[in-house]
Design a protein around this nucleic acid. Structure first.
Lengths: 239, 239
DNA sequence: GATGGCCTGTGGTCAGTCCACTTATGATAG
DNA sequence: CTATCATAAGTGGACTGACCACAGGCCATC
C-alpha cells in the first residue's frame, strides 16, 4: 500500500453534528447570560438568526425546558428560570414507586443533606436572622389558618440551606424537598403535626444561635430520623 | 344575568393540554415498563399509534432524552437508559463556573453523600465483598498502567453506594461523582495520587469490616475533606 | 469466503400552513 | 373622561408532506 503517502494526507473522521444539538448548545450559552425571568426571543426569530428551521429550535427548547432551565408559556414565550427554583426530578424518580421503602430512602437522603447544611451553618458564624424570621412566620401561620401545612416544615430548612451558602447543596436540598412533598402526598399520608416540627426546629436554631454546632447537628439528625419511625405500620409491609 | 341557571349547568374551565406533554406522559409510562437497553418503537409508529404527528412524538422524545431516560441513536432508534447510569447534570451546573469556590462546594456536597453512605453500610451488616473486590482491583490497576487514574477514586465509593441499597442516594452520589470528574478536569488539576486514596479507602473498609461504624464514618469524612485542603493556593484566589 | 453494491428502515431536517390564545391597540358607548 | 368591547398583531402548538443521510441486512459477484 501507499502507507508512506498517508503521512501527507491526514485522514480524519467527519463528525456528524445534529442541528438541534448545536442550537441547544447556543441557547444554553444564551440563557446563561440572561437574568432569571427574562424572555427569550420568539421561536421564529431564533430560527431565522440561527439559520435553522423552527422545528430544530423547538426541539432544543423542549430539551432546555425538561432540563429546568427555561419555562415555555403558550402564546407568550420562553422564560429563563431561576436555577435555585424547582429542579427537574425525572431522573431521580425514574422506576421508583412511592412505598414505605421509598419513604425510608428519601428520609435517609434528606438526612444526609440537612445534617451537612446544619454543619456548614454552624461552622460559618453566618447571620441566622433569616432562619429565625422564617421560623417565627411559620409558627404564626400554623397557629392561624392551617392551610399550607406540609411545606411549612421545609421552609425553615430551605432557609438554613441558603445561609449555608453552597448552591450545589441548596439545589440538592431543593430536589429532596420537592420529592418529599410529592411522595407524602402521593402516599396519602399527612407529614405530621407542624407543632412538633416547630418545637424541634426551635431547638435546632437555638443550638446554632448558642454556637453549639455539634448539638445542632445531632438535633437535626434526630429531627429528620423521627419521620421514619412515625411511619404507619400498614405502609411498612409494602417493601 | 341568569345566575340562577348556573346551578344546573356546571361551568368548568377547559384544561388546555399540550399534545406533546400527553405523549411525554405516555412514553414515560411506557419506558418505565421496559428494561434498560430495550428499544422503543420507531417514531413513525409511535405517532401512528398515538394518533399524533411525528413532530409531537419527537418533541416528547427530546424531553425524555434530556431527562436522561432514553438515548436516541441516529438512524437506529431510542433506547431505554439505566436509571442508575450517568444522570443529567444541566440543572445542577447551571450558572456555576468551575473555580475554587465551586470545588469547595462540590467537596462539601460529596462529603454529605459519602458520609451518609458509609453510615448506612455500617448500620446494615451487609456483604462488603463487592467493595473489597473493587478496592483490590483498583489497587492493581494503579500499580500497573496508570491509565484511568481519576475515576479509580470514585469506583470504591460507588461500590459502597450500591451496598447501601438506597437508590435515591446512589443516584445523587452518581451526580456528584460525575460533577467531580468534570470539574477537576475542567480546572486542569490532577485529583491527586491514587496511592494515598487507596490507603485511606483501605482504612475505611477495614473499619467497616471490623464493625466499627463510627470510625468508618469519621475516616470517610476526613478522606473527602482532605481534598479541599490540598487545593493549590493559586486556585483559591479565584472566588 | 470476502468484497462491494443495493434496498429498506429510521432518525434528522425543512418549508409552509393553520389554529388558538395573549396582549395591546384603539374605537365606541356611557 | 372613563369603561367597555371589537380588532389586529404576535406567539407557541400542531400538522402535513417531503427529502436527506446513514445503519444494517441481503445478495450477487469475484
Amino acid at each position: 500500500m501507499s502507507s508512506d503517502r498517508s503521512r501527507v494526507f491526514e485522514i480524519v473522521p467527519i463528525r456528524q453534528v445534529d442541528v438541534y444539538r448545536e442550537v441547544l448548545a447556543q441557547l444554553e450559552g444564551l440563557v446563561r447570560t440572561m437574568p432569571a425571568g427574562a424572555r427569550l426571543a420568539p421561536e421564529r426569530e431564533l430560527a431565522e438568526q440561527l439559520k435553522v428551521s423552527r422545528v430544530s429550535v423547538r426541539e432544543a427548547l423542549r430539551a432546555l425546558e425538561s432540563m429546568g432551565k427555561v419555562e415555555i408559556r403558550r402564546n407568550t414565550g420562553a422564560f429563563v428560570l431561576d436555577p435555585d427554583g424547582a429542579p427537574p426530578l425525572g431522573h431521580l424518580r425514574q422506576g421508583l414507586q412511592v412505598d414505605a421503602a421509598f419513604l425510608q430512602w428519601l428520609t435517609e437522603a434528606r438526612a444526609a443533606i440537612e445534617v451537612k447544611v446544619v454543619e456548614l451553618v454552624a461552622g460559618s458564624a453566618a447571620d441566622l436572622s433569616a432562619a429565625r424570621a422564617v421560623l417565627e412566620r411559620a409558627g404564626d401561620e400554623a397557629r392561624g389558618h392551617l392551610g399550607s401545612q406540609g411545606s411549612l416544615d421545609l421552609r425553615f430548612e430551605a432557609a438554613l440551606g441558603r445561609i449555608a451558602g453552597n448552591p450545589l447543596l441548596t439545589r440538592m436540598q431543593s430536589m429532596v424537598h420537592q420529592l418529599w412533598v410529592e411522595a407524602w402526598s402521593e402516599a396519602g399520608l399527612a407529614p405530621g403535626e407542624y407543632a412538633t416540627f416547630h418545637a424541634e426546629h426551635e431547638q435546632i436554631l437555638a443550638a446554632l444561635e448558642a454556637g453549639d454546632g455539634s448539638l445542632a447537628v445531632r438535633r437535626m439528625a434526630e429531627h429528620v430520623d423521627r419521620r421514619v419511625r412515625a411511619l404507619p405500620q400498614a405502609e411498612r409491609a409494602g417493601v
